[in-house]
Simulated assay, not measured.
Amino acid sequence: MSHKLKTFISELKNRYSFYKTNSDVNAKYSIQFVCGYHGLSGGSEAIVSVANQLSKSFKVSFFTFPKSPLNPILGSFVRKATEIEEADLFIVDRSLSEEEYKTIKSFNVPIIVSIHGKPNSLHGLKDDVSMQVFNYATDCHFVSLTQSELFQDEARNSFVIANSSDDLRSCSYIETRTRTKRLGLVGNFEAPRKNLNKNIESGLQSDADTIIVWGNTLEKISDKRVIYKGYGHDKVEIYSSFDVFISLSTDENLPLAIIQALGAGKPCVLSDIPAHREFAHCKGVVLVELDDKQQVVNAVNQLLKEYSNLKETCENFWFDNFSEQQISENWKRTVIRLIENSKCA
């Protein structure tokens, strides 16, 4: 299928999802999500996930447009809005214009900025633009303590709630003679920090039969063991396609792909960077030094042998730390507290 045809089909899906009528929840409080960045990334997917979770307890709308790639993943109880509307609370990202922030601020209600990156990484926005949200937000949401420490000079009234992911425990590895030891990569590999080539090279030096790459790539290594799948929406399909997950990123925040992999029962080989150390106490995770090729290969081979025995360990770790059940309750309590405090002020 040509790139042009794929783009056309994708835009049709986005438009269909935009015009599809969603149901409103009969709830006491309303929340509107307003995001300037509508590209598909771990951060944008995480914000959509929060909207979907909160839509079960609040009246939730999401400011969007017909071609937005986020439309297909917005839940059935999230109303799609074409303008900024009055609400009891707003949740925004860091990439809005100052005019939009001022409009939201005029409603005089709590504004949460949900941050899914680092101070110097925001889809090419200049520092002065990416930091202006702190002049308007009343509260700052971070996904890890490691991340929050990077913003300690700018953020006020901050709180930490990790990203959640869908329940992927139904993912199962289908045994066939040709599918025995599969290594998986998931992410936007157009970003150099994702270290695509090092991930693939490590896989090719290991005992893996196949290396499955899910996500956008700028270049491809020509090897019959490497299969490029492109970007996919079906998480069950993605995480059922391999046995062991690998991420040798040089820099991360709290990667949603790792959370999803653990939820699907997939053990992980991860580079030893601050963000990945959040997962170090899971027995299904092995941290490796980026410059130690043999250590990486040994870790991959070890998990390819043991993945079936680690499945339950990974799933339990996900449930205790990142399941929608746990994260949704944290968000619900936080939102109610902020709204009710603001009404009493």
Rank of each mutant, 00 (worst) to 15 (best):
I111T: 11
L196G: 01
I174S: 08
S97L: 15
E85A: 09
I115A: 10
E100M: 12
S164H: 02
L185A: 03
I91W: 09
N199I: 01
I91V: 15
Q132E: 13
L96V: 14
E86W: 04
I84R: 14
R193G: 00
C140K: 04
L196K: 02
E86S: 15
F134K: 08
Y101I: 08
L183C: 11
Q132F: 11
D88T: 12
I200Q: 00
L89K: 06
D127V: 11
R169L: 06
V133M: 10
Y101M: 14
N157P: 05
S114K: 03
R177E: 13
S121C: 07
A81C: 14
N188M: 03
Q205M: 12
F151H: 03
S206C: 06
T146P: 00
N157C: 05
S170L: 07
F151R: 04
C140M: 03
F134M: 06
K118V: 13
E83V: 05
A162I: 01
R193W: 05
F159N: 01
R94I: 09
S202D: 04
Y173F: 14
E149C: 03
H116M: 05
F159R: 02
K126V: 00
E85Y: 09
F151V: 05
V92T: 15
V129K: 14
L183R: 08
I91Q: 09
S114A: 13
H123C: 08
S172L: 05
V92Y: 11
I200W: 02
S144D: 06
L204N: 05
R156W: 00
D127K: 14
V160A: 00
I161L: 04
